[in-house]
């Protein structure tokens, strides 16, 4: 029997050099799973709008369900992208200052782009 009275989960939490345990790995998978459905819905929606005029495209995006799914897509997509790009940068960029700069830069760009996308959908959905 183990002498450690702590719950195994408590010991497993927060492992690794960054003390964030499996958080990065798990979030990457959860967002991936969500994106399987969200991106397929998005591609089908865009295909339906391929030859639509401005008013039709706007009216389609303005529908509550479409607006909600689109905002979910934007947020999930940029979270997933940052997690993926982070791994690529950590693997291949070995000059420390360049690595840190890239890691900060992708996060700044992703947050700004996600906010821009969400604001755009809200403007369309709320009709302003």
């Amino acid at each position: 029997m183990s002498k450690d009275l702590r719950n195994p989960l408590a010991r497993a939490r927060g492992l690794g050099s960054a003390k964030e345990g499996v958080g990065h790995w798990m979030t990457q998978r959860l967002t991936a799973l969500a994106l399987v459905f969200l991106t397929l819905w998005f591609v089908i929606t865009v295909l339906g709008l391929m030859h639509a005029d401005y008013a039709t495209a706007r009216a389609t995006i303005a529908k509550p369900w479409n607006a909600v799914l689109l905002i979910a897509l934007i947020v999930t997509m940029f979270k997933h992208a940052v997690l993926g790009l982070q791994v690529v940068i950590e693997d291949y960029v070995h000059t420390r200052w360049l690595e840190m700069t890239s890691l900060v830069l992708i996060k700044f760009i992703a947050v700004l782009a996600a906010l821009t996308g969400v604001l755009a959908v809200l403007r369309i959905a709320l009709g302003s």
Binding site: A57, I74, A81, A113
Partner: peptide, 19 residues
Amino acid sequence: GIILAVGSLLIVWGLAALA
């Protein structure tokens, strides 16, 4: 994955233009 990350900016461009 890297290409799609760049492509996501184009999607935002489209939405911003629509708005």
